[in-house]
């Protein structure tokens, strides 16, 4: 496995390390290669954003980490959580980790929360399950969690059902639920995509603040470059199930190296572009059931040359830890 630059740069051990993760969906007549060798490591208190468009494999990667993929999904690679390998653990062991050491928040809290239990009952239930404390203590903890995620009048909200809350409140309640057992890793799957802008920024600020207080690592998945810029320490850009580029938020936003990242940033509309034509990436993402050999972005890339279509694409890592997977990078990035 080549060093692709996402390994932790300091000496302390990462809370989450993922090595060469692959996910294939194999069924009767389809074989979809959703994730094709993703590797990264994450320290305490760090936020890594996986940035990508629909079908890039970013959500599938998260679900693979949580062990939430359907039975026909073939997951390979290595996943270490707090130094312990978790891929291939028996279902019961995995269930203990889920909601405990590793937990997840989703785009649609309405679908992830159980409609027939109150918010308080759901949070308390998770605490009782994982820590075996009695109900009253668990309810007290649930109250504290609702306060922590800044839900107004938390005593009353504890007794609310999910449908009695607004979208922003539900998302806060789900964050409280995810943090119930102080996880060391929080996985966030587009948690702000369904929210209004004024609510989205509140949730992003809340996550940043909670991370400072509690020190968990966050893997944040989004398609929105602006959201990535607000929340992340590092960004990894995913295309067709592979990281094509990664680096600090500043490196990615200011000096993108990969043509796909450049195109993605250029096609992200902002006001200054008024009157001028938008730069676009031509074409559509590749079919994951029949990926081309070589670089998956080659058919849409303006710099494509013969070397892109054959064999493995070189991975260039800069001294700062930034990584880019591109034939051109061998010339533009000083090795």
């Amino acid at each position: 496995m080549p060093d692709i630059g996402l390994a932790a740069t300091t000496t302390d051990t990462p809370v989450l390390q993922v090595d060469d993760l692959t996910v294939r969906f194999k069924r009767r007549n389809t074989d979809v290669a959703a994730v094709n060798g993703a590797s990264f490591a994450l320290r305490r208190g760090e936020t890594l954003t996986i940035l990508g468009e629909s079908g890039s494999g970013k959500s599938v990667s998260l679900k693979a980490l949580m062990g939430l993929l359907p039975g026909y999904a073939q997951v390979h690679g290595k996943i270490w959580l707090d130094g312990r390998e978790i891929l291939g653990l028996p279902a019961a062991e995995l269930a203990k980790l889920r909601g405990g050491a590793i937990s997840m928040i989703f785009q649609e809290p309405m679908a992830a929360l159980d409609p027939v239990y109150t918010i308080g009952e759901q949070i308390a239930e998770t605490i009782v399950q994982h820590e075996g404390v009695d109900r009253r203590t668990a309810m007290q903890r649930a109250l504290g969690l609702l306060e922590r995620v800044k839900i107004p009048s938390p005593e009353r909200r504890l007794k609310n059902y999910p449908h009695e809350m607004s979208g922003g409140m539900r998302q806060r309640a789900m964050i409280a639920l995810a943090l119930a057992c102080s996880p060391s890793v929080l996985l966030a799957d587009e948690p702000t995509t369904a929210l209004d802008v004024t609510v989205q920024i509140q949730v992003l600020l809340l996550l940043r603040q909670l991370q400072q207080e509690l020190g968990m690592a966050i893997v944040f998945v989004t398609h929105d470059v602006g959201v990535a810029a607000e929340i992340s320490d590092r960004i990894a850009v995913m295309y067709a199930g592979r990281f094509v580029e990664s680096g600090t938020t500043r490196e990615i936003m200011r000096h993108p190296q990969h043509p796909y990242t450049q195109g993605l940033l250029a096609s992200t509309v902002h006001g200054a572009m008024r009157g001028s034509k938008l730069e676009t990436i031509p074409g559509t993402p590749p079919n994951l059931a029949s990926l081309p050999p070589g670089c998956a972005f080659a058919p849409r890339c303006r710099y494509t040359r013969d070397a892109c279509r054959t064999g493995d694409v070189p991975v260039i890592t800069s001294p700062t830890g930034a990584m880019v997977r591109c034939v051109r990078a061998t010339e533009t990035v000083p090795a």
Binding site: E53, S54, H223, D224, G263, L264, S267, T268, P285
Partner: peptide, 8 residues
């Protein structure tokens, strides 16, 4: 739409 498609 995805951002790159949105621009198109």
């Amino acid at each position: 739409l995805d951002k790159s498609v949105e621009a198109q």
